[in-house]
């Protein structure tokens, strides 16, 4: 018995050691019953305190925009994300605490609402207007806080060279050297950056949508994010490809196709032509 107690020396054990003698069997039984009742009462009380009752109001009350957002949410999002955005097992995650940045990215790029459950939500024409997106974002923001995309010019004071270096270190592994996107495992992929706006890129870095890691402000400061956004928008997207048609910038795979489908085909026709003239 004592050796057993010694072995279980934890926080509780330390209190018990104050006692001189072990309590009698009856007292132990009574104590256990009291503790049981107390625990049940505590759990029940906590439940009644925290669980929303049938007539319970949202707490704290939502602002106007957020209330509009909730109305939209209850029509378009509730099927998968559940009532009060708490998520539905096997269908959609909880949105409490994901922040407005996440909503802005997913909804403004048309990824949400999703067409169907699959490896990854694809970009498509957005379902909601900018105004509605902002209302939805406000609603999710008021549910549990989270990251927000700052207002204003997101490329202010950017350094292209630094942005390029940061892009190659942090982004090119998945989005490829020219931002064209790339494959990940099991049907997942890093999308092309070509259609992404400044705010979407910023929101993606902040919220880490789908398979993308989060690049919070302590990993990439807002200035560094501005550098990266400027590099993507001003160099990768605006560059006029000095070498001519860029073959999709997929690297050597399309170059290999081109040398056969253009070079070899043209020259085989030439051989037919030359040999035909005899």
């Amino acid at each position: 018995m004592t050796s057993d107690n010694d072995r279980r020396r934890g926080l509780l054990g330390r209190f018990r050691r104050e006692r001189s003698a072990p309590p009698s069997r009856g007292r132990r039984r009574l104590g256990a019953a009291v503790r049981m009742i107390a625990a049940l009462a505590l759990a029940g009380g906590a439940y009644t305190l925290f669980a929303p009752g049938v007539q319970a109001q949202e707490n704290p009350p939502l602002t106007g925009a957020a209330a509009e957002g909730k109305a939209l949410f209850d029509v378009s999002c509730v099927t998968c994300h559940g009532r009060n955005a708490q998520g539905v097992e096997g269908r959609g995650p909880s949105l409490v605490g994901v922040g407005a940045a996440s909503v802005e990215f997913q909804v403004s790029s048309g990824r949400m609402p999703m067409a169907r459950q699959e490896a990854q939500a694809a970009r498509k024409p957005p379902v909601f207007t900018d105004e509605q997106t902002r209302q939805l974002a406000q609603y999710v923001q008021e549910l549990g806080g989270g990251p927000i995309v700052p207002e204003g010019d997101l490329q202010r004071g950017a350094d292209l060279a630094v942005g390029g270096e940061l892009f190659r270190i942090n982004c090119s592994q998945c989005h490829a050297f020219a931002g064209g996107g790339g494959a990940l495992s099991s049907g997942k992929y890093a999308p092309s950056l070509a259609p992404a706006s400044d705010r979407q890129i910023y929101a993606a870095m902040l919220s880490g949508p789908q398979n993308m890691p989060v690049f919070g402000d302590n990993q990439l400061s807002p200035e560094e994010k501005a550098d990266i956004i400027a590099y993507i928008q001003q160099t990768l997207k605006a560059d006029q490809d000095p070498g001519g048609f860029n073959l999709g910038r997929y690297g050597p795979s399309t170059e290999g196709l081109a040398v056969f489908f253009v070079g070899i085909v043209a020259l085989v026709f030439t051989t037919l032509w030359i040999a035909g003239k005899s």
């Binding site: 270190i169 090119s172 910038r249 690297g251 050597p252 081109a258």
Partner: peptide, 27 residues
């Protein structure tokens, strides 16, 4: 003159920690 090949300016200088997606050798 017409088809851009191996746009080295996008790849950046080689650093051991930089590996782009779709890094392929020539065909």
């Amino acid at each position: 003159g017409l088809f851009q090949i191996n746009p080295i300016w996008y790849f950046g200088p080689y650093e051991a920690w930089v590996v782009s997606a779709a890094s392929q050798p020539d065909w």
